[in-house]
Design a protein around this nucleic acid. Structure first.
Lengths: 195, 195
DNA sequence: CGTCTATTTGAATGTACTCAAAAGCGGTGG
DNA sequence: CCACCGCTTTTGAGTACATTCAAATAGACG
């Protein structure tokens, strides 16, 4: 069953009965993707929340100079960091792109509204998801300004070894807020100090 | 009425009837504070959410070197950025301090649980609050790494002129992720270029 | 008024960036 | 299967933004 992982995830936070599971399964849209594919393009209207069932996604923002900035790297079992694609605003300023082949589950906005109306306890689930996301993000900001790029990189590979292995370095650099060139220099240093 | 502002805030997101207003008013604890007072100390158990009714608070984190890092500056009509004080974890790593005299409204954890149980639509309110907080925080991170300190400062005083006027510079510097010395130099530059 | 803390100023330093070029790597077509 | 192409990663030199340290000045509060 393709919705197994998301059900398991949600069950960690709120107990689900069969009716709820069935409803959820009926509104989620499986969305397979291949490497390099754009799932959400910036400038599109806000449409759905994205749960990564398999593979890796990244969400990025293109600034006025045309430079991309990665705001989130999303692995299996997580909601895509692109919550903007689902906010009150009509269009996103963010794009979401596949970094590998895999499959996402899309929760369209109208479906989410039905879900929340029929089973209000899902509000609780999303509240917890956003609350945790906010806490992680605050921590990330502090680390971004109180630790060196090298420490951030070390901490990143410790926290997300799977992502570190499978995502091109230039995106990791962007996620860490540094240039790819500088990340390369850090890696050389880290490699020599370890062996 | 001391709960007027918070009721107004919540009503922006979910309609409230009199019973809900009364319940809310009955569980909120007014907490006057004077300048410099610590509302939440790091290491304390997680206890309540904090709504700033009047005045200014800041939430900060003390790193292993003993340096403080401001993660949020909170003005009137906002929830304190210290959502950690209310998370699943037993103790906070953050402190919340008054930057002026004023009054906060405390929503104790057990009261919030009752509130959510009695009136589940409050889950929706908190979900929206956290969702917006997360979006702001993501934006802040991007700006922190794609713009210069000077731009961030200009953008800060545009977005929060009241806070910029009333909060000591060293905290603003910390919030922006720079040293007080460097902020001082930026201010000199900004001042001369404006006049 | 005096003390304590915050802010400003300056000089020296460092971390991370830019630009340029070379090397590595993966895919595709001949 | 190999050669070529495009893209990513590495390397190096020069530079800039922001830091650290130290000291002077200004401001706030009892």
């Amino acid at each position: 069953m393709t919705t197994e992982r998301i059900i398991k995830n949600i069950s960690q936070y709120i107990p689900l009965d069969q009716a709820e599971i069935d409803f959820l399964a009926s509104v989620l849209i499986p969305r397979p993707f291949k490497q390099g594919e754009l799932i959400v393009k910036s400038g599109e209207p806000a449409r759905y929340m994205i749960f990564v069932d398999e593979g890796y996604l990244m969400t990025y923002y293109t600034d006025i100079n045309g430079a991309d900035h990665v705001i989130a790297l999303t692995g299996e079992g997580w909601w895509s960091g692109d919550i903007h694609s689902f906010s009150e605003q009509y269009v996103t300023r963010y794009s979401t792109k596949a970094l590998s082949a895999g499959e996402a589950l899309l929760l369209p906005k109208p479906a989410q509204e039905q879900l929340l109306e029929a089973y209000p306890k899902f509000e609780r689930y999303f509240r917890i998801i956003f609350q945790r996301g906010l806490m992680r993000q605050q921590l990330r900001y502090i680390e971004g300004h109180s630790t060196s790029a090298e420490e951030r990189y070390r901490s990143f590979i410790r926290a997300y070894p799977d992502i570190a292995r499978r995502v091109p370095q230039k995106y990791i650099a962007s996620y860490l807020g540094i240039t790819p060139e500088f990340l390369s220099k850090i890696r050389r240093k880290v490699a020599t100090s370890k062996s």
